[in-house]
Design a protein around this nucleic acid. Sequence first.
RNA 1: GGUCCUGUGGCCGAGUGGCUAGGCAGAGCUCUGCAAAAGCUUCUACAGCGGUUCGAAUCCGCUCGGGACCUCCA
Length: 501
Amino acid sequence: MSLKVYNSLTREKVPFTPINAPYVGMYVCGPTVSGESHLGHARPFITFDVVFRYLTHLGYKVRYVRNITDAGHFEEEGREAEDKISSKAVLEKLEPMELVQKYTNLYHWAMDRFNNLRPSIEPTATGHIVEQIEMIKKIITDGYAYEANGSVYFDVEKYNTDFSQKGQPYGILSGRVLEDQIDSTRELDNQEEKRNKSDFALWKKAPPEHIMRWQSPWGEGFPGWHIECSAMSTKYLGEEFDIHGGGMDLQFPHHECEIAQSTVCNHKMPARYWLHNNMITINGKKMGKSYNNVIKLSELFTGTHPMLTQAYHPMTIRFFILQSHYRGTLDFSNEALQASEKALKRLWEAYQWFSKQEALGADVAGNADLDNKTRQLAEEFDVFMNDDLNTAKVLANMFELSSVINSIKDKHIPANALGRETVAYIQKQMHAYLEEIFGLQSEQAADNGKLEGVLQLLIDIRKEAKGRKDFMTSDKIRNELATLGIQLKDEKDGGMSYSIN
RNA sequence: GGUCCUGUGGCCGAGUGGCUAGGCAGAGCUCUGCAAAAGCUUCUACAGCGGUUCGAAUCCGCUCGGGACCUCCA
């Protein structure tokens, strides 16, 4: 049984075989730090965090590279081609690097709250100007790029002609045919500099007002839209690496251009497996800047958005994303998040109780059918994950296990129904998947232990009051705590537990 | 216009041709001093029309609807 992934390049599910096992190189397109991250951005970072964690779980030694685009890819709207970062810096009267730092910090903060592991390397575009210039020089030397007016463009036409013969036409990833693209009627800035409309910039001459600029053989300017990923992936993962990930909307043109650039320089396709996550939608429409329908992560965490009726914990959002398969669209709504919040709470409480049970299970399972069934549910975690990372199905199985766990807890199912080995196995699997692979964690992780002590004291007092049938006191404790957002629950066996909203 | 994806019950979402996905919400019951939680039971489905097949949500065709990319975009 081995991992299969859907490779966008071949459009089929294929077994994952690293070039040089046990080492795996994975590159994922990171954020442009010219603004705050929104929910849509969270999807790829959580998706590939789980990929990273799962590969690690399988025993691979993964180098996970995720870049930070801080060099300001320009917008070509209207007549002015501007550096997004520099233009905004003027508005906010900040140094460009100050702005970049601010949004990088915010991004890191959000990633930490999501419990995303830090990548092995997180290179910045501004830190790799030299590498990008070297790569551009190489592409020019090989005849696949030309200088025009201080800018450098990639000759897509020539590339397509030459590499089509090698079975690698331009558009191989996104299934586009270059000839069909030429009709594009869009007016682009400096279009006349290009030999063909489909050519893309490797280096852009910086206009005088442009703040972020670097010296190059072609004058002062800044790198083009796609070259940073080619330069940095080559530098840290080599000419050919295992996995390249990112959102589906990057497939064209970004990843297509990366392939062209890298293939010219390194004479081989950069990545073997291309994984693309689908979009998060709102009312069926993609969440994105262009649609003006974004919900920023800070708004989600605080509930300060007109669409939201409450704040949502980062783990709720993580869970929400994992409840769907990464290649399908995921429709967002306040209602859907509320459902996820409740579901996660239920699952987590069952998990936490179950993982503390050390004496559970009999030498011989009292209920062989149930024992088999539950063991199978836990075994299937691996099967589902190996089938193109189907986190949704794993979670579905976990809910089925939760029913059994809760029944044992409430003594609707006898404690000896399952065998000791089965219990231990399910405990192990649930721990591995929930915490290590899915990266979920207790929402009360920040609790320093004092609260625990205080609550235990209140619980003891309440128990005593109940023993005296002093329900005035016992209800007061429960009700007052409830108004503070702490919920007490009486257990079957006279015990009490609490949960914090 | 070109390329591609998609249409599952009130909502979100899995679904490899034959087996109840799952979650949330709704209804009933059990438990409880009362709650809450939990458990059990239960109601809502596969856009429409044809076709292939012993059998289709799943394959094929058409119709209708939705979406993505083609331009910065996760």
